[in-house]
Design a protein around this nucleic acid. Structure first.
Length: 515
DNA sequence: ATAGGGTTAG
């Protein structure tokens, strides 16, 4: 870059210069030149730089903020906004307090981002109180972020309260509440908000479809999708098609997903990252691993999500070694693995012969890639170790877990004990499992099965009594299949399906033929 | 002049 050029630059030109930056290094270069040339004394210029850095490198943005003698409300808003997109969320409130100490008044734009940085219900209540005190509470932007954050923290009743106290309810507030209700299991309430909202757009429909999926109401989701296809309500845009495709993967609806695939190819000229990645995930979840691999190889550019989806797809389709090999290839010529990639590759190690490899990767994750294992990583490790018969190793790991084991961890351990006939260990795991607070029936059933397996019938009765006493219901196992766009759900020992008799007859034929 | 909310790939 030529110094003369930047010296004569006008504000819009400077803005265009920043917009052209594709990497942080490029932005940092421009920052350096901005300072050398003396442009940095114009507050607008530095504020713009700060806003741009906050989108991709929050630490850098914070240093810029620290260098400004008297930062404006714009500078604070940009930095808080940057923090709302990272994991250092606690910095949001810290900055807000610093800003107040410097006697800078927050404005309407401060609260939506500040609300997004709240990492627990108490900080959210605190920020909500501030917004109320300073008169920003009727702003629709503030309302919609409050609704979605309260819902995220499982305080959906507070979300509903905020919604009801608002006089102007636009499409975004309503969509926030719809998503909030769905993610807290309030399906009827979500539908009611949708029916009563003044207008609906593609995002509200998208929220309905993914909400139904989250609550396992697959046919309702497809009913909505068909409404969209047949009527002229809203045009199913790319995001909505991606939502449906994800839904198809979740339930294994191969036929419907394939039509979405065609529609996506028609509507979008480029085979972009998100579409490609969701297609890989979709085909892998439907068991068509060849098609998934085909898309993977044909994709011109791949990011970490693409590679992770492929590794996970191979791992869950029994191609354990291929998944691990692909991970090795990725390390040579692909992006840097993240925490989800390690979950995928640990799932791939779920085979008796691969537990050494698993330990190896688990160590590499922390030492080489500096990723702290989450409860899911420990879960994968305990599961595969216990399954392969290394119960000692599994137990050591459980004791090492900084966050403490949950029901899933003890469940995996118990399962490993049972298939390896470790009775006394199984009993100990069972006691831990039942000792954990929680209404999930899986643990109790596991323990009951364990006692039954070793002939301790008084143990079985004891667990049953405990379930009655603690009001734990049994959620029976179930499965589903899509036929001609209709999803059929079956429970264990199900006698409710309208064609149940026919299905059983066919099943019997198959059983006599192949058993 | 600059900074804000809801759906959406692993």
């Amino acid at each position: 870059m030529n110094n003369n050029i930047i010296n004569k630059i006008s504000n819009p030109q400077y803005l265009r210069l920043l917009q052209k930056c594709s990497t942080m290094d490029h932005l940092k270069q421009i920052h350096a030149q901005t300072i050398t040339i003396g442009l940095a004394r114009f507050t607008y210029i530095t504020s713009k730089l700060l806003a741009f850095s906050a989108m991709s490198d929050i630490d850098y943005a914070h240093t810029i903020l620290n260098q400004i003698t008297i930062p404006t409300i714009f500078d604070y808003n940009s930095t808080i906004s940057g923090y709302s997109k990272t994991s250092k969320q606690e910095m949001g409130i810290l900055l807000y307090n610093k800003m107040r100490n410097n006697r800078i008044e927050p404005n309407a734009r401060t609260f939506p981002v500040l609300i997004k940085t709240c990492d627990c219900i108490s900080s959210l209540l605190q920020v909500h109180g501030q917004a109320f005190k300073l008169g920003n509470i009727s702003d629709v932007f503030v309302v919609s972020s409050l609704i979605s954050m309260y819902s995220n923290f499982k305080a959906v009743e507070l979300a509903i309260q905020v919604f009801e106290e608002t006089s102007y309810k636009n499409v975004v507030c309503c969509t926030s509440l719809i998503t909030g209700c769905f993610s807290n299991g309030l399906v009827d309430e979500a539908c009611k908000v949708f029916d009563e909202m003044p207008e609906r757009n593609d995002v509200s429909y998208s929220a309905m479809v993914s909400g139904f999926i989250k609550n396992e109401l697959f046919n309702k989701a497809f009913e909505f999708f068909r409404q969209l296809k047949n009527g002229n309500l809203v045009k199913p845009n790319r995001s909505l098609l991606l939502t449906i495709l994800t839904a198809c993967g979740t339930i294994g609806a191969l036929n419907i997903g394939q039509t979405i695939h065609l529609q996506l190819l028609k509507s979008s000229s480029v085979f972009d990252l998100e579409i490609g990645t969701s297609l890989i995930d979709f085909y892998a979840k439907c068991g068509d691993i060849k098609k998934a691999l085909d898309i993977f190889t044909k994709m011109p550019s791949k990011d970490i999500a693409t590679w992770t989806s492929m590794i996970m797809g191979l791992a869950t389709n029994g191609e354990n070694q291929t998944a691990i090999n692909l991970f090795e290839v990725m390390q040579n010529k692909g992006p840097i693995p993240n925490e989800i990639t390690f979950i995928a590759v640990l799932v791939a190690c779920n085979h008796k012969s691969l537990s050494t490899k698993a330990w190896n990767l688990f160590g590499k994750m922390t030492k080489v890639f500096n990723i702290q294992p989450s409860i899911e990583h420990y879960g994968c490790m305990v599961h595969l170790l216990a399954r392969s018969g290394d119960l000692k190793g599994a137990e050591i790991l459980i004791n090492l877990m900084p966050m403490g084991p949950d029901g899933a961890i003890w469940g995996s351990f118990l399962h490993g004990c049972l298939i390896n006939s470790e009775r006394s260990l199984a009993e100990r795991a069972g006691k831990f499992l039942i000792g954990l607070d929680g209404g999930h029936s899986g643990g109790y059933v596991g323990v009951a099965n364990m006692y039954a397996g070793i002939g301790r019938w008084e143990g079985v009765i004891g667990v049953r009594d405990m379930m009655v006493e603690r009001k734990v219901g049994i959620a029976p196992g179930w499965s589903f299949i899509e036929v001609d766009g209709v999803v059929h759900k079956f429970f264990v020992d199900d006698k409710c399906h309208p064609r149940g008799k026919d299905i059983r007859e066919v099943l019997n034929v198959l059983l006599t033929k192949y058993q």
